[in-house]
Computed example of a mutant assay.
Amino acid sequence: MILHITDRATYRPGEPVTAPSLETEGFVHCSDPGTVHLPADRLYAGRTDLLLLEVDPAKLDVPLRWEPGSPPIPGGPWFPHVYGPIPAAAVVAAHDFPPGPDGFTLPPSLQQG
């Protein structure tokens, strides 16, 4: 699974998922479970209106490429970038994604035991 951060006001269940980056950079930013805290802490600190969308890459009908972050971090992790709208059928779950006292962490339902 890959993950996409969005907010409750933007997300429309049953509709394709887009983001402003699709227009400006040509892709929708995503993360994997081990890296999602990095963009969350950097870009969304203190936000309490977020959702973490769980996306099944096998259900994408547009290209998925693993690439350096945008902007790149020398020696940093690579991230999944979805080159088109994420089809509604590829979104298998939406999880509340509030920050904790030390930043963002995976919701309990996504943590491996």
Rank of each mutant, 00 (worst) to 15 (best):
M1F: 09
M1C: 11
I2P: 01
L3G: 02
L3K: 06
I5P: 00
I5N: 00
I5Q: 00
D7T: 09
D7R: 15
A9I: 13
Y11G: 10
Y11E: 12
Y11S: 10
R12T: 14
R12V: 15
R12D: 11
P13N: 13
E15G: 02
E15Q: 13
V17N: 05
V17I: 13
V17Q: 06
V17D: 02
A19Y: 08
S21Q: 14
L22Y: 03
L22W: 03
E23D: 15
E23I: 05
T24L: 11
G26R: 07
G26V: 03
F27V: 03
V28D: 02
V28C: 06
V28K: 02
H29S: 14
C30E: 01
C30H: 04
C30Y: 01
S31G: 12
D32E: 14
D32R: 15
P33I: 08
T35E: 02
T35K: 14
V36M: 07
H37Y: 14
D41L: 12
R42Y: 03
R42A: 15
A45L: 13
R47Q: 07
R47L: 03
T48Y: 08
T48R: 15
D49F: 08
D49A: 08
L50P: 01
L51F: 10
L51I: 04
L51R: 03
L52C: 11
L53W: 05
A58N: 11
K59Y: 00
L60E: 06
R65N: 04
R65P: 01
R65G: 00
W66T: 11
W66L: 11
E67Q: 14
E67N: 05
P68V: 03
P68N: 09
P71N: 08
P72I: 07
P72M: 09
P72K: 08
P72Y: 11
I73Y: 03
P74T: 11
W78V: 15
P80H: 05
P80I: 10
H81N: 09
V82L: 01
V82R: 00
V82S: 00
G84E: 08
G84D: 07
P85M: 12
A89S: 11
V91C: 01
V91E: 00
A93P: 03
A94L: 07
A94N: 07
A94S: 15
H95A: 05
F97V: 01
P98A: 13
G100T: 11
P101A: 15
D102S: 13
D102Y: 13
P107W: 13
P107S: 12
P107N: 12
P107Q: 12
P108K: 06
S109C: 06
S109Q: 15
S109L: 09
L110V: 06
Q111M: 08
Q112G: 09
Q112Y: 06
